[in-house]
Amino acid sequence: MRYEVSEAIPEDAKAIRKAVFVEEQGFHNEFDRTDDASLHIVAYDGDEPAGVCRVFPDQGETWTLGRLAVLRPYRGQHLGANLVTKAEETARSHGADRLTLHAQERVAGFYKSLGYRDMGIHDQDEGCPHMWMEKPLTNNAGSESEDEA
């Protein structure tokens, strides 16, 4: 897989999100102004678009991951996890130390397996149960050695 990061939403990203969120899942309000402030990550299998997500700055060093979608033929191949990793790397390279996301509750286990935790905020998005999750992006492993020095 190859990953491309773009400031403007690519047509391939729009097509994937439309296929997954609008056509498969029935969401209506898929595209918003946040797209204009996001970095869009598209995964390609050769020249074929396979998956997408976006990341954007939220507050301070906190960034938000969203609109993670993988086309049906590419599911079950860890592409979603790889896109999350690429999103974390991208946000971190822009100064993020924490990533949040607004997950559909039915896929919360996927994000938990990647180190995200429930923030305790549950709501609905177009009638679909969602929850806010977060993950620190900093490595605190060095803090003990600093205390011992």
Rank of each mutant, 00 (worst) to 15 (best):
A15L: 07
A87L: 00
R98P: 01
E126T: 14
V55F: 02
N139D: 15
A149P: 00
M131C: 15
F110M: 10
E105V: 13
H94Y: 12
D125A: 02
R75F: 10
K135Y: 09
S38A: 15
R106H: 11
E144N: 12
T34I: 10
Q25R: 14
H78K: 10
H40R: 05
T90C: 05
I9C: 14
R54Y: 05
E89C: 11
E23A: 08
M133Y: 05
G26V: 11
T138V: 11
G127I: 10
E30W: 07
F110W: 07
P129N: 14
K112H: 15
G95E: 08
I121S: 06
D58S: 12
H28W: 08
I41L: 09
E7L: 07
L137Q: 11
H40W: 07
S6H: 14
Q77H: 03
M1I: 02
E30G: 00
I16R: 00
K14W: 06
G109A: 15
D35R: 09
S145E: 15
D58M: 09
V20I: 14
Y74I: 03
R72P: 01
C53P: 05
A15E: 08
E23G: 04
H102C: 12
T85W: 07
D58G: 03
P57H: 10
M1S: 00
W63I: 01
Q25H: 11
N82G: 07
A87V: 02
G66H: 04
R106N: 08
M1K: 04
D35N: 07
Q124I: 08
G115C: 14
D58L: 11
I121T: 08
D12N: 12
V52W: 03
R2P: 00
L79D: 04
M133D: 06
Q124G: 04
E105I: 10
D58Y: 10
K18T: 14
A13G: 03
E134C: 11
M131R: 15
E7N: 06
C128T: 06
D97R: 12
R67M: 09
I16S: 01
Q77F: 01
E48N: 05
